[in-house]
Design a protein around this nucleic acid. Structure first.
Length: 246
DNA sequence: AATTATATCAACCGCTCTGGC
DNA sequence: CGCCAGAGCGGTTGATATAAT
């Protein structure tokens, strides 16, 4: 007997969300506030999605406080530092940033930061120089054969590996020095300030910002009866609309 | 211009955690 | 205390975009 599926997936839609679906979900959340039970959301909002999918869509894409855009250098530094302490606990890492999701940070780590660390000769899993990594007779071959194996370590604490703050900072200094020598383009990075990320009133302002955002989007889409198909030219995803101020 | 390789990121899968009973 | 349902999380996949040849 296998585990019961989280929801009845027969007849449920999968894949990319349409603007109409986004609208339905946003409308529902805006009208109902916090969601005590995501499982009921699709039925109540008139969506052919599972609750899990709705939750993910909201958290990763529709939330009005999402920042989007490229990560700044300081954000990357902070991610690296947090990762050295927390390992792959992306939600914990994301909790230190306002407007960034665990999925976004995870993707950025896997696609960008890991490569940069490797370029710098640092093991993304241990944050230590790879040339200093223990290469005992027994594990040398194994290490060569599976570069990603070491990255499977979920948490340094669990592994008993300690990276001190000082050690991480030293590595970061080296990283930043070398980093500056690369011709990396941050011209498109959005602005970021730690004050903003630590602002305790952010959640209190959520309702207002959500309303503002919905109003903003409302002014572009006629949210009532007509929706612009995703394929249609000149249709923009919500964050683009609010970002470029249409 | 066509094809192939690589990068990106939204979304899904399945496991773990948590709270209610 | 054990069981169950549901939420949350991290790993992975797959579609799409972009770059290289």
């Amino acid at each position: 007997m296998g585990r019961k599926p989280c929801c009845d997936k027969v007849g449920l839609k999968r894949g990319p969300w349409s603007i109409e679906e986004d609208h339905k979900l946003m409308n529902f959340i805006f009208n109902n506030g916090t969601i005590p039970c995501w499982r009921n959301v699709p039925k109540l909002a008139g969506l052919l999605r599972c609750g899990k999918s709705c939750r993910l869509r909201w958290i990763n894409y529709l939330r009005p406080d999402l920042k989007r855009g490229s990560f700044t250098e300081s954000e990357e530094d902070q991610i690296i530092q947090l990762h050295s302490h927390l390992g792959n606990r992306w939600s914990k890492i994301a909790s230190h940033f306002s407007g960034r999701t665990d999925n976004e940070i995870k993707n950025h780590w896997n696609t960008k930061i890991k490569k940069k660390l490797k370029l710098l000769g640092l093991d993304p899993a241990t944050h230590k120089p790879t040339e200093n990594a223990e290469k005992t007779d027994g594990n040398k071959k194994q290490e060569e054969s599976s570069e990603t194996k070491s990255e499977d370590v979920p948490c340094k604490e669990a592994e008993g590996i300690q990276v001190t703050v000082d050690e991480t900072n030293d590595l970061l200094k080296d990283y930043e020095m070398l980093y500056g020598s690369f011709d990396l383009d941050y011209s498109h990075a959005s602005s970021f300030s730690m004050e903003e990320s630590n602002n305790p009133s952010t959640s209190a302002q959520e309702a207002d910002s959500l309303k503002q955002w919905v109003d903003c989007v409302d002014s572009f889409f006629s949210w009532g009866d007509h929706f612009i198909p995703l394929e249609e030219e000149n249709s923009f995803p919500p964050w683009e609309i609010s970002r470029i101020g249409i």
